Amino acid sequence: MDIGKAFRLLNQERIVFLLTVLLFVVFSLTLNNFLAAGNLLSLVRSVAVLGILGLGMLIVVLGRGIDLSLVATMAISVAWAMQLVSQGMPVYAAMTSGLLFALGIALITGILVAYAEIPPLFATLAMATFIYGFGRAHMITGTDVVYMPKDMGWIVELGQGHFLGLPMPIVVAAAMALVVFLFLKYTKLGAFIYAIGDNLPASRIGGISVRPMLALQYVISGGIAFVAGIITATSVEAMNTRVVNSNMIYDVILVVVLGGVGLSGGRGNVRNVIVGTLLIGVLMNGMTIMDVQYTIQNVIKSLILLLAIVVDSIVNPRDEQTGQQGDI
């Protein structure tokens, strides 16, 4: 194989995968205990929730959207559900209430984007603020941190259990990745999401119900966020609602864009999310072992996100007009 052909075969996903392998090898040779089985399991487990949220973001981004309310939906819906259990509501009823809240608030977001035609960036940013404020004022009282009740039943196993020796958060993340992969690849709805992201006017002309599909994307994303919240809460036996004000939503966007999912819509798959998540997991784990300050880690992640967005804007221009701006 000649060098030119090798370069043509490289894309963002393959480059990120190669960087992940390179970092893994370097850290294995230079850092003590990096290759220890416990550390590797901890590495994957630490990014399991990030990967699940990335799957929700993937579905929205494929349809030319973005969901900045994802973390707020995750935190408030699960915190409220656990508080309902603490107040005496049966676990199944409380979890169902939390899930319905997540789906309902996501549906409102989808309606704002699809029918009111508010740009997704502004709609989801406003909804994130509303969800957090409404949740703290009317649903969750007394504390920023809602601790998991003792009578949560088998649901606790989702965060603390094991299956075939693997921590359940990893198993759940893998199962969610498989479900999203099958949904996008083998269902009509998945094909419609790709079509809308690739060419919205043509999709409308082709008979796809564009507005309901745009709203559905956010509903699916909200459901995935609730699952991620259950894993988070049962793993640490609490839900800290202050995570809404953290950098977590930017980490979610980072793993999606870094893996090669096009912000212009219609380009990307589950594999891209997995690759991006693994790179960030390896990088964060290595920097933690090296005792790099948390603020420095955030700076590095921010620079990586900025670089990934610049690359995406070049590789996947928003439209033909955008792609020609460099010719002016």
Rank of each mutant, 00 (worst) to 15 (best):
V47T: 11
V49E: 12
V49R: 11
L50V: 07
L50M: 14
G51A: 12
I52N: 08
I52Y: 07
L55P: 03
L55F: 12
L55E: 03
I59P: 01
I59L: 15
I59D: 00
V60S: 06
L62F: 07
L62N: 04
G63E: 02
R64I: 03
G65A: 05
G65C: 05
G65L: 08
I66H: 04
L68T: 01
L68S: 00
V71D: 01
T73D: 00
A75M: 14
S77Q: 01
V78K: 02
V78P: 03
V78H: 04
A79L: 13
W80I: 02
A81M: 09
A81N: 10
M82Q: 10
M82L: 15
Q83V: 06
V85A: 08
V85W: 03
S86R: 13
M89G: 00
P90A: 02
Y92I: 15
Y92W: 12
A94V: 07
T96V: 15
S97V: 12
L99W: 04
L99S: 06
L99K: 06
L100D: 06
L103K: 09
G104M: 05
I105A: 06
I105V: 15
L107V: 01
I108Q: 00
I108A: 15
I108F: 15
T109Y: 01
G110L: 04
G110I: 00
L112A: 13
V113L: 02
V113W: 00
Y115G: 10
Y115F: 09
A116V: 15
A116Q: 09
A116S: 12
I118W: 07
P119A: 13
F122T: 08
A123S: 14
L125A: 09
L125S: 08
A126N: 01
F134T: 13
F134E: 10
F134Q: 13
F134P: 11
G135E: 09
G135I: 05
R136T: 08
A137Q: 14
A137T: 13
H138P: 01
H138M: 12
M139K: 07
I140P: 11
T141W: 05
D144F: 13
D144P: 03
V145D: 10
V146A: 06
Y147W: 05
Y147T: 09
P149H: 03
P149W: 03
M152V: 15
M152R: 00
E157T: 06
G159Q: 04
G161V: 06
L164Y: 07
P167F: 07
P167D: 05
M168Q: 08
P169S: 09
V172E: 10
A173Y: 12
A175E: 05
M176C: 14
V179I: 11
V179S: 11
V180P: 09
F181R: 15
F183M: 11
F183W: 04
F183C: 07
L184H: 10
K185W: 03
Y186Q: 07
